[in-house]
């Protein structure tokens, strides 16, 4: 469904991705783990078109998408949930959801139907429709970020650190929702620092280091890999996460 060949990208003269090859199959969840600064977010941004690639190619459904602009990539139902959620804080939950469906205005299923699907997954959003998105709790904001993306009826969803800053119990809720979406056929690429929870959701995983893919295996194999466990399930990560917690 998605194929990257030798993708290079960066910011200005600084190259962050040094030739990335990967494929994502239909219906799959691929998790990319790696330390801060490994290039995970840049990789997602390159796919969604936010960052222009300087080499290689990105093919989606058999079509080169790297020359396209962000809006044209989005209209192909390849949707990114950016790091830090990036909701429209001063606008209402309802408006955020409506804007999520912007790329599918006048096509796809009726907006009311799409809203119902989002509410079925995250009923709490329905109670908060008229509330300002910026005043929601962290967990609710992440639900809204996922809901907003679903309004575009994605075929491929890119998630950048959906667990960031959330309490473990809230993360469980979000990931339960994601698992359900995948069971309904949605393909996902998930970038996470919390390797344990991310890999437990995924079929396959990649480990990135300094702009390169250094390990690729089934999610289970990576979960069992002592080296991965030592580096990415470490205490440092857990402490960092506790400091960021907010429900």
């Amino acid at each position: 469904m998605l194929e990257l060949r030798g993708v290079r990208a960066g910011y200005g003269r600084i190259e962050v991705l040094h030739g990335i090859d990967l494929t994502v199959g239909e219906g799959e969840i691929l998790t990319i783990v790696g330390a801060n600064g490994a290039g995970k977010s840049t990789l997602l941004k390159a796919v969604s078109g936010v960052v222009r690639i300087s080499g290689g190619s990105i093919t989606y459904d058999g079509e080169r998408i790297d020359p396209l602009g962000v809006e044209n990539i989005v209209s192909r139902r390849l949707i990114q949930i950016p790091e830090g959620r990036r909701l429209f804080g001063p606008m209402s939950v309802e408006e955020n959801l409506q804007l999520g469906g912007y790329s599918r205005r006048g096509s796809g299923s009726p907006v009311a139907e799409r809203l119902e699907r989002v509410f079925a997954l995250f009923p709490r959003l329905k109670e908060r429709l008229s509330q300002q998105a910026g005043t929601l709790s962290g967990g609710e904001q992440q639900m809204l970020a996922v809901g907003r993306a679903l309004m575009a009826e994605p075929r491929l969803l890119l998630l950048d650190e959906p667990s960031m800053g959330l309490a473990p119990i809230v993360v469980q809720d979000i990931f339960t929702g994601l698992r359900r979406l995948n069971q309904e056929g949605l393909t996902m690429v998930l970038v996470e620092q919390d390797a344990r929870i991310a890999l437990s959701l995924a079929h396959r995983g990649l480990v990135m280091e300094r702009g390169r893919i250094v390990l690729e295996d089934s999610a289970q194999a990576l979960l069992d890999n002592p080296e991965v466990r030592a580096i990415y399930f470490g205490r440092r990560n857990a402490g960092y996460r506790r400091g960021m917690e907010k429900t």
């Binding site: 969604s48 936010v50 962000v70 809006e71 989005v74 209209s75 949707i79 990114q80 950016p82 990036r86 909701l87 429209f88 804080g89 001063p90 606008m91 408006e95 409506q98 804007l99 999520g100 912007y102 790329s103 599918r104 205005r105 907003r148 575009a152």
Partner: peptide
Amino acid sequence: SLFGKAVRACAVDATSARLQGIS
């Protein structure tokens, strides 16, 4: 209007607005 909301969204966060398919 949806386009009016799109304009407001760009004022809040242009990159995020583009990720919703807003030109």
